[in-house]
């Protein structure tokens, strides 16, 4: 595989999701499927994001399952030389690993083969290079954030975007809430930001507490009047839960105590693996000549 000067492919790891499994398949079925795999055509799935959208994964897996194709999933880091001391690249690589795990899981359920590739450079260039280097790529599916024209100009095979409607699968894509912490959302949330939030909300919380406790007498007089004044304590505790809630959240994050990273990657719907029906050979019903001696 040739790469443009100065740009090195980030990583190349191939994971065939299918052959690792299953006890249910006997040896013969396995061999049959492996043979069929060898010259199986591929769907090229391209993303420039750390995490490939889930609906694109699902679409690719479903089509590949139906057509008996393999999938070549490529994460293209379009800004490999971004000036942040390699932080973006590191995050990108980590996000890519999570995305790969998720994709493998989805593909595994439908027994589709997925190969993963990490590339750097321009999307169009990468697609063109891969289509020439790896034969039998039938079509390209691009993730959100990639202009179809940009890829189509250089691609020898058709290029499809996966567009979703608001009411359709879009809801699935927002599983990766950008506000979510950790590398899962390719977020750049750093400890520094948590510390900043911690101080900000800490100050606001202290302000609120100081206001209540300094004016204790007045507060107790009005807050316990009852009737419509009931809204005062309720509103106050809502304010406390917002300010103090954010403060405590940032506090633990700033200390480095955050949710398990495994949980995010494992959140895949528990689809039952789809069993590939092995077609029984058709009985040979041709007439035969029999000679009785």
């Amino acid at each position: 595989m040739q790469t443009p000067k100065g740009i090195v492919p980030a990583m190349h790891n191939e994971t065939a999701a299918f052959p690792q499994d299953p006890q249910d398949h006997n040896q013969i079925d396995r061999q049959l499927l492996l043979e069929r795999q060898k010259d199986r055509p591929f769907i090229l799935v391209v993303t420039r994001n750390g995490h490939l959208s889930e609906h694109v994964m699902e679409y690719a897996v479903n089509v590949a399952h139906r057509l008996q194709y393999g999938i070549l999933a490529v994460h293209v880091d379009t800004l490999p030389l971004f000036h942040d001391r390699g932080k973006r690249s590191k995050l990108f690589a980590a996000a890519m690993r999570e995305s790969e795990a998720l994709f493998n899981r989805k593909a595994h359920n439908k027994e589709v083969v997925v190969e993963h590739l990490g590339e750097t450079g321009k999307i169009g260039g990468v697609v063109s290079r891969l289509c020439h280097a790896k034969k039998r790529i039938e079509f390209v599916v691009v993730d959100k954030g990639i202009r179809v024209q940009e890829v189509a100009r250089q691609s020898p095979v058709p290029v499809f975007p996966v567009i979703t409607t608001q009411s359709g699968q879009c809801s699935k894509t927002i599983v990766h809430n950008p506000k979510e912490k950790g590398v899962f959302a390719m977020s750049t949330t750093s400890r520094k930001r948590h510390v900043k939030n911690c101080f900000l909300f800490g100050a606001l919380t202290s302000g609120l507490y100081a206001a209540v406790f300094v004016n204790q007498d007045a507060v107790m007089t009005y807050f316990t009047k009852g009737g419509a004044f009931a809204l005062l304590p309720v509103a106050t505790v809502f304010a406390v839960s917002y300010f103090h809630g954010n403060f405590t959240s940032a506090f633990w994050s700033a200390l480095g105590i955050e949710a398990s990273k495994k949980t995010a990657a494992q959140r895949v719907e528990a689809d039952q693996p789809v069993k590939e029906g092995v077609v029984a050979p058709r009985p040979d019903a041709r007439p035969r000549l029999q000679v009785n001696v």
């Binding site: 406790f213 316990t224 009852g226 009737g227 009931a230 304590p233 103090h244 405590t248 105590i257």
Partner: peptide
């Protein structure tokens, strides 16, 4: 709470002190 507060029974100071601790706990 709305019912109790209507009768003016909620001591907001106690509530805020407990919350100061419990929100740390609930996050953890």
């Amino acid at each position: 709470t709305l019912i109790w507060a209507y009768y003016g029974m909620v001591d907001i100071r106690l509530v805020m002190i407990i919350l100061a601790g419990s929100l740390f706990g609930v996050q953890l």
